[in-house]
Computed example of a mutant assay.
Amino acid sequence: MAAPKSAPAGERASVYYSSPDVVPDSWQPDRPGVVEGLQPVGRRMGAQGPDQGFALTIAERLAPRIRLQGRERLDDAIRGCLGIALRRASLYSRAPVVHDLTIAFTIWGFFDEDPPDDLIARRPQLFEGVGNVNHHYAEGREIADLVPESTLRMTPDQVDAAYPARWRELTGA
């Protein structure tokens, strides 16, 4: 590549550029925070997976379909179901998709105009306040951990067929 006319030439050029004396070694992941092997698994440790933040975008798009009862809040419903959706996505080693959130909202009756009375009575006990992640992380994890893996492995059609008759079995509540 030709040098621009403004670049110095000749002996003065070496003043402006010189190679380093030593080339550093390539970077190695030797930091203490790097997890070697598989992610740890345990109660309230979450479910790791790629691009989990996209679940919030999907939830915002599904928000108009969410039906709340009484004093329920939209942010509590979304945050409570978000952990379920992320857990399902991580089972398949992928980023969250709309079906993950659809299943989570369906099993808790948030898409239903008239959910069963006992489900309506149970939701506030679990979901109230979980929208405030800073103060209620443990409660949000508890909701996600309640749902059996068998529910998470179901298709949206299977969940639709089972809800509302089997909501306790689907949610683990």
Rank of each mutant, 00 (worst) to 15 (best):
V147H: 00
V97A: 08
P148Q: 07
D25H: 06
Y17F: 13
S26G: 06
W27T: 08
R71C: 07
P24Y: 11
V34G: 00
V98Y: 02
A3E: 11
G80I: 07
G46C: 13
L91D: 10
N134W: 11
T102H: 09
A7E: 12
E113V: 05
D160G: 05
P29Q: 09
T102G: 13
D118K: 06
R168M: 08
G129Y: 03
A3S: 11
P115W: 03
S6C: 05
S6T: 13
K5C: 02
W108P: 01
G37P: 03
A3D: 12
P164E: 08
V23T: 15
A9I: 06
V34N: 04
V34F: 14
E60W: 02
R153V: 02
I103E: 00
G37H: 10
P4F: 02
R87A: 12
S93I: 02
A55T: 11
R122I: 11
L101G: 03
Y163W: 04
L91N: 04
P115Q: 07
L152D: 07
R153F: 00
L68S: 07
G33H: 08
L38M: 12
A47S: 15
F111R: 00
E149P: 00
I120W: 02
A77K: 04
T151F: 09
D76G: 05
E36L: 15
S26L: 12
I120E: 10
E36T: 12
V130K: 02
P148L: 04
Y92I: 03
Q48H: 11
R79Q: 13
P4W: 05
R123K: 06
E60T: 07
R122P: 01
S18I: 02
I58G: 03
R94N: 02
Q69N: 09
I66H: 00
I78S: 03
F111Y: 15
A55Y: 03
I103H: 03
G80W: 05
A7S: 14
A89D: 06
L74V: 05
V35G: 01
R153Q: 13
A89R: 03
E142P: 00
L82H: 07
Y16D: 10
A89Y: 00
R12E: 15
S90G: 15
Y17L: 12
V41F: 10
V41T: 14
N132T: 11
P115N: 02
A55S: 14
G33C: 05
A121L: 08
E142W: 08
D21L: 11
P8C: 05
R12D: 13
A63H: 01
S26F: 08
R73S: 14
E139R: 15
A7R: 10
A2L: 11
P8V: 12
S26R: 09
P148K: 03
R71D: 15
D51G: 05
L146Q: 14
R141E: 12
T57I: 14
R31C: 11
Q69L: 02
D117F: 00
S18E: 12
P64W: 04
Q125H: 13
A104Y: 00
A9P: 00
V98Q: 11
D75R: 09
G131F: 03
S6D: 13
G10I: 10
D160T: 07
L91G: 02
D51H: 10
Y17S: 08
Q28I: 09
R122L: 13
R94Q: 15
R141H: 06
E36Q: 12
G140R: 13
D145S: 01
S150H: 07
I84D: 05
L119G: 01
R87I: 12
H136R: 13
R65E: 07
P96N: 02
F54N: 11
